[in-house]
Nucleic acid binder design. Structure first.
Lengths: 204, 204
DNA sequence: CTAAAAGTAAACTCAAAAGTGTAGTTTATT
DNA sequence: AATAAACTACACTTTTGAGTTTACTTTTAG
């Protein structure tokens, strides 16, 4: 009787799924364990049998979402392709991450909690810290190859991401603007790449 | 017996001051009315005599802080001064706003609440919306004067602010970095101005 | 001086929500 | 079939915090 997953595993998944949904829509404090149990269609006691406390459950979820969202950001430099094209590709990649509802929900969730209780989300920030590192590496390689004139790659990397985030992350985080559509994304990409290359591009 | 302010006015100010302090450090939900009363050295009943509810008190405070923080952002264009210098002045002004602990506390406060309950802080966003408008106006004037080659002033304005905020606002909001010191501020200003002019500067 | 207006302390109601204990039921394993 | 492990319903304790009531004191204004 083990063709399917064991009951206890199924329950655990139900709980995680329900909690993720509730935390995303309402945040940590506004979500009660009773509600999570109800949504998961599971006894509250079962929730506590799997997760010792609300905080443990929250961290389990954010950490998993965080890891999943962050793993897509290595950009190998390729000397055969013009830097402009590579930059566009990087920007496209970044913007597609920012434009996923899942990512945005996670940022909201973590932001709203981190401001109130920094300890709860400290682990997540370690992930975020390294978010821009892929771009920086790429910039260093491109500079070595003489295709960019960058003296401070970390600053340059942040600038590049800032030019994207100011249109495709912060306004959405505050609910001021919806996630940009394809054409808007293209405008954002072009404006960022154009500015970056104006500043740091060489001959080309 | 009216040489000084009336008692009731003093009490009201004490309450506002205490509430502002508590909301700033702990946010809306984590701050209790008992605590505000204690900090203000006032009876809890007195708090409720002045402010009908916690929300009313919160909105009174954020709105005032918001108005105060936002009024400093008109940048008249001056054709006699090189655009580079004017841009530096604008950047300095912006960064000095972002670098005030008061402003940052307010952003934290409003952010953490707005993500959990958007209604509570909707009024504040109207103020924020117009934050970048002074820069945009300046860019338009400078373009008319032929000193900048900008096709979309709104985008350009956002980009300029983004280049500052990515170093002097977002990291501080998330508690990752402290408010930048004078020398760091200068680096931020220079990097933003340099990039902006590389992209949009004319002859010069 | 006196009445009204405002403040005070402390006990109170009420609701929400975290987490626990228990007794009984279902599922899995041997 | 029997036993252990997991789940369930539900009652329970405890804490926290918003907002109120009450009985009393202080301040202000006529």
């Amino acid at each position: 009787m083990n063709a399917e997953k064991k009951l206890t595993e199924l329950k655990r998944e139900d709980i995680i799924e329900a909690a993720a949904k509730e935390f995303k829509t309402s945040g940590f404090r506004a979500t009660s364990m009773d509600r999570i149990a109800a949504t998961a269609q599971v006894s509250k006691r079962t929730v506590y049998n799997h997760f010792a406390s609300k905080e443990v459950l929250f961290q389990a979820i954010t950490q998993e979402l965080c890891d999943r969202a962050m793993q897509i950001s290595e950009y190998p430099y390729n000397p055969e392709i013009p830097v402009r094209n590579q930059l566009q590709a990087i920007a496209r990649q970044e913007i597609s991450l920012l434009s996923s509802a899942e990512f945005l929900d996670m940022v909201k969730m973590i932001t709203s909690e981190s401001l109130a209780s920094p300890d709860l989300t400290r682990a997540n920030f370690e992930s975020f810290q390294d978010a821009g590192i892929g771009v920086v590496k790429w910039i260093i390689e491109a500079s070595k190859d003489g295709k960019l004139a960058v003296t401070n790659p970390v600053i340059a990397g942040k600038q590049f991401l800032a030019l994207i985030e100011t249109f495709a992350l912060w306004p959405q985080l505050y609910g001021v603007k919806p996630i940009p559509k394809k054409e808007e994304q293209q405008i954002i990409i072009d404006s960022a790449v154009e500015m970056f290359l104006s500043r740091y591009g060489t001959s080309e």
